[in-house]
Each structure stands twice: as C-alpha cells, then as structure tokens.
Design a protein around this nucleic acid. Structure first.
Lengths: 338, 338
DNA sequence: GTCGTTGTCACAATCGATTGCGGTCGAGCA
DNA sequence: TGCTCGACCGCAATCGATTGTGACAACGAC
C-alpha cells in the first residue's frame, strides 16, 4: 500500500495537507505559490508519495478505472481488442479491469453491477446481444458505455466495430469474380449484430449480382468450430449443390472445412471458402484461409478513446457509430469455380 | 454508481448505520438481533443497496481486487491463464484487473505501483524475468504475489508453472525413440526461467541418452516466430547436420519451420520438430505440430487459488512451487530419422 | 431489592484525500 | 494613514462505510 500519506508530505514541506493536495493537483496548482509547489513536489518525490486512489475516488467519485467486458478471452478475436484498449487507457492514466463473462448473461449482469460498485468510470462492452436488457438499463443510467465489435438493436450507445457490410460484399464479389454462383452463407447467431448484419449484407450482395438468395443462408448457433461443423453437415445432408461458402467468421470456416474435408471435398479445388476476422495463424493453415481482415487492435483503441471522450465531457454526443475499414485478404482457400 | 447508501438502508430499517453495517456483514451479523437483521436485509434488497467498494476498501484496506500482470495478451499463451485466474477470482468475489506490460519492464514498474496505489490485494505476475529487481522489491513488501508460468532466480515467491523438465524430457525421449541422434534445441531467452530450465533439461536428457550436447543449443532472443526463423537461418548457415529440433515453444517452432520449408527441408520427412505449450490451432497446421501440452487454464486457476490462500491467511508458507503435469501430444511433425 | 451479566444497538472516530469558505498579510492606491 | 484587493494558505466538512466503546434495558442470581 502507498505507505506514505499526504499528511506526511505536507508535514515535510511544512504546509497544511490541503495545500499539499492543491500543489500536487495540476488543476488547482495555480492557487498555490510556485515556491510552495516546488517544496511540496520535492517532498513528495523524496518520500515516494503515491496517492491513495481509493480515498481520492471516494471523494471525487472518479476512479480512473474502466471495465472491459468480454465474452471469452480465449477466443483469439478478443485479445487484440483488449490490448488496443489497454494501451490507450493506460496511456491516459486509466486502469483496465477485465471481466470474462463466459458467454453467460447472468454472470455478466452480476459482474457489471459489481464493477459499478467499484466505481468504475465507464464500460467497454464486447458482449452485446441484439436484444440486451442490460444494455438498455446501462444506456438509461449515467455511466459511460461504449460497445465494441457487436452492437445492440436499440440501446443508444456509441459503437465501434468493423465494416461488416463491406467485408461481406468484398467476399461475395471475389467469389463471383471467380465464377462462383452457388454460394452459401454460414451466418453467425441471430442474437449478435455481426450475425444479423453479415447475413443481411450477404443477401444484398447476392441480389446485386442477380444470384438466388433463397435458403442459401444457414444460421449457426454460435461462433465456434463445432457450429461450423454442424452447419457443414447440414449442407451435405441437404444435397443442395454449392461451390463456395462465405463463413460468418474464421471459426465457422474452420469447422466447415474439417467436415467437408472428411467428406472428401478438397479446398480450393472442389469448393472455395472465406472467413472473417483473420485470427492469428489463419495464414499458417493449409491452404491458408482467405478472410476479411479486421483492425482489431484499432477497434479496441478507438473504443477506449471514445470512452475517454465521453468520460471527459459528459455532454458530448454519445451515439457515434464508428465503422473501421476492413480488407479482404485473398489466400489459398478461394479459387475458380469448377 | 451505487446510488443508495448505507444510511438510507439504515433509515428505512429504522436503525443506526452502524447496526445496518453489522447486519449486512456476515462476520459481525451475530452481534445483531436476528429480527433486526431481517429488517435490514429486506430494506437493503428493496432499495437495491450495493455497498460502495471504495469506501469499504478505504476503511478496511481490503479491496477484493487482484492484479494480473501479463507481457502480451495477444500471445495465445496467456488468454487461457487469464481465464483460469478470472474464474477462480470472480468466484471468490474478487475482481481482476489486467495489465499488459508490452514486455517493457519500465512500463511494468509503473503499472505495478499504480495498482498498489489502487489498493489491490495481490498480484499474479506472468512477466517474471530471471533477474528481476521489481520482484525482489515486491517479495520484501507485504503484498501477496504469485508468479505464474515464469519464475525468478531468487525472489522467494510462490510459483505455479508447467513441468518444463518433464516436457522436454518427453520430447527428447520421443525423438530418440524414433532414431534421432542429432537434435538441436531452440532455447528461449536466458532471462526467462522457462528458457533456462528447458535448456538445462534438454542437456540433461541428451546426456542421459549418451548424446553430444556441445553447441546443440541455440538461444533465441525472444519467444517469437521471428526469433525462431532467425535461429533456423543460423542453423542452416552453420552447415551443422541435424535431424530433429526441440523448440523452446510453439512460436519458435513455427518460425523455424517457415525458414526450413523455404530452404526445401520437408517436415517430417527431412527433419522432426517439437513445440511447447500447444497453442490453439497447432493441431490445424499441416503437418499438425507435435508439442507439449501445458494445462494453461489450470495454471491460472491454481495461481489464483494460491494468491487467495495467501490473502486469506497472511502467515501461511508463501513459497510453494507448484508444477502442473504436462503431456507430449504426438502429431505430424515428428517421425523416424532418415 | 440490588448488583452483575448479557444482548442490542447508538455514538463517534476513522480510513486518506479533496474542496468551499474564510482568514491573513502585504501591496497598491487615495 | 487607512482601506481595498488579491494572492496564498489553513480550517473543517465531506465522500461512505467499518468498528471500538459505551449506554441502556431485561433478566437472573444473591
């Protein structure tokens, strides 16, 4: 614990604690004689004074702590976001508390309220579901909240994500340019904005190319390899022909490839497939995965900055929707239609 | 913020705040009439009372916050550790604050002292270097600290890690059993315990098999693909023959394979290689990586429990060294020596 | 009937820093 | 000389909870 207290610094400098506080506080420093400031600062340094954040927070109701709520940190999608946010936050003197909800809304609710009790100054939330009562509550409260990666249907909160529409369109365009016409979309869960919006974008892109949309979207229960595998199994059983797949994310693509490979379908000879997010190691696979690269670290960083803005001036507009540019990285899993 | 305060609960229940506090606090609850406890508890529920952790912490100097210090969260090694720790901690009513030091000791020092100012109850540190003045300081202070994954030369602190010795021995045994005799070790940096101890274990295992050790250990500057690639380049340039590599971790293995592949060396036909840690997707590579599986989630969980023990009873022995069992997962990158 | 005990609870101090308000002192001006 | 004004700093309240100490009543024992 910060053993030395403000009183001791004050005593060492021969002033009242109040004066010491002001001298140490850039905001109130000009109410104090520069020479006194010098003395106090020197004393503080000499004693190794570190202010007690709890006491300060208690008094000022500012804790310089921001909470980051993540569904599952072991999903490689999130660490870069965490890192981006952490760097911006700690650069601004903020501390990051992380909570992993394990995809459990009840757990999440408890953790968020516990964080509020801890007096965090704001939240970055990466667990938004399409219908999310918790977010509605938060939106009504005064706490600054920024959504990242996923957004919610109606909560009026700022959001920072990737340009999903463009990502999907790029994928479809790429496949169509290679002559594919029977394209299937493995959609993420409908209770996530990414699942819904990527599916919508897929349908729009298909229509623009004059391609049939009917029953070419398969919804997956979750963003996981298992769900992708299950979807691929459904595709095989249905017997419906296809030459290309636009997967809702990399994990779904991986799961599908596993099943299709076991069924004797070779990629990219027999079918093409694209992913989304470009997780680490995707370029190391055989064949390396063609996928949409999303600037995840930036996403975290921008979300953090947005949060800091809000915390800084609480009256600013608080519903900016930031879409970060994405890019299609063409690698080995896509090729000409046969 | 927890809008409703203890005073209001007390007023609603018709008692003094002190009594309300005791009624709400399991430890002191038996100093209060059960009927009164009932009234207070009910009032608290009705008003949705959430205690202000800052105020409580200020008074009790317990914050129920633990800090986890990580060198780089985007390294897939760490998320499982984080997750394991988070689950144990939050299960015990603790909050996890995460700090990513970006492998920068100065940054780390600042962050740790900032955390101390925040009054965290303890640290789990995954950034230990072999010579680590910061850890020596911490060991001398009263703060509970647990080292995870890496340990320090002399800091007398509890440690939770994998059984590196056994992991390396299993790898060497496996390779020798396949007839390999020219085996090279790509060692991690010597300022990490894992780097040193795996190298030591490698030498010991080689000696036991009566194999030459001289100049068969190449130290890498960091645990990264680049460093692995650089090491492989050195190996090629040296012209020294080898048929197998024991890499200090998976990333080194990946980097080496890239360079060796580009040089026309096929795996596992021309050479065998093993990794360490079994990061996600390692089984998805072609060929899938033979590697040592370390129970990372458990590691985080055990570290957290160790920390909680220490926090719970500060007088307990505080230098337990826990080595979690590891396992060699034989996949496609190892085969018979040619 | 008085005294001591026990059970309940109220009072007030405390944790460490911040901040509104007011006091002091010297300079400047009439 | 006397008065005002501003710069500088001290006093004390405050944030919200915890906790040592003591008040008070009921009760049993002598």
């Amino acid at each position: 614990m910060g053993r030395v207290r403000l009183v001791e610094v004050a005593r060492a400098a021969g002033v009242h604690p109040a004066t010491a506080s002001r001298a140490l506080n850039p905001g109130a420093r000009d109410e104090v004689n520069p020479r006194t400031v010098q003395r106090v600062v020197r004393a503080a340094e000499q004693l190794g004074y570190v202010p007690n954040t709890l006491a300060r927070g208690l008094r000022t109701s500012r804790s310089f702590v921001a909470a980051l709520v993540i569904p599952d940190i072991t999903n490689s999608l999130f660490p870069p976001i965490v890192r981006g946010a952490e760097q911006v936050l700690s650069g601004a003197g903020f501390t990051l508390v992380l909570t992993d909800t394990n995809n459990d809304p009840d757990l999440e609710r408890g953790q968020v309220s516990s964080m509020r009790a801890h007096g965090v100054d704001g939240f970055i939330i990466a667990t938004a579901r399409w219908q999310d009562p918790l977010l509605d509550e938060l939106a009504k409260s005064a706490v600054p909240v920024v959504l990242v990666n996923r957004r919610s249907a109606d909560a009026a909160l700022p959001f920072v994500g990737g340009d999903d529409q463009r990502g999907v369109r790029l994928s479809v365009d790429h496949l169509v340019a290679h002559g594919h016409r029977s394209i299937v979309h493995l959609a993420g869960p409908a209770d996530t904005s990414t699942g819904r919006e990527r599916a919508t974008a897929f349908r729009a892109a298909m229509r623009e190319h004059g391609l049939p949309v009917r029953s070419s979207v398969i919804e997956c229960a979750s963003y996981s390899e298992q769900a992708g595998a299950a979807a691929a199994q459904r595709m095989l059983r249905s017997g419906r022909p296809f030459t290309a797949i636009v997967a809702g994310n990399d994990l779904l693509a991986l799961g599908a490839m596993e099943v299709l490979g076991a069924a004797g379908r070779r990629c990219p000879e027999d079918y093409s497939i694209t992913g989304f997010n470009d997780l680490p190691f995707m370029r190391k696979l055989t064949p390396p995965l063609t996928t949409v690269q999303v600037p995840l670290t930036d996403m975290g960083a921008v979300a953090a900055r947005t949060l800091l803005d809000w915390i800084g001036k609480p009256d600013s507009v608080r519903t900016t929707q930031t879409l970060l540019p994405v890019e299609l990285v063409v690698r080995g899993t896509t090729g000409p239609a046969t």
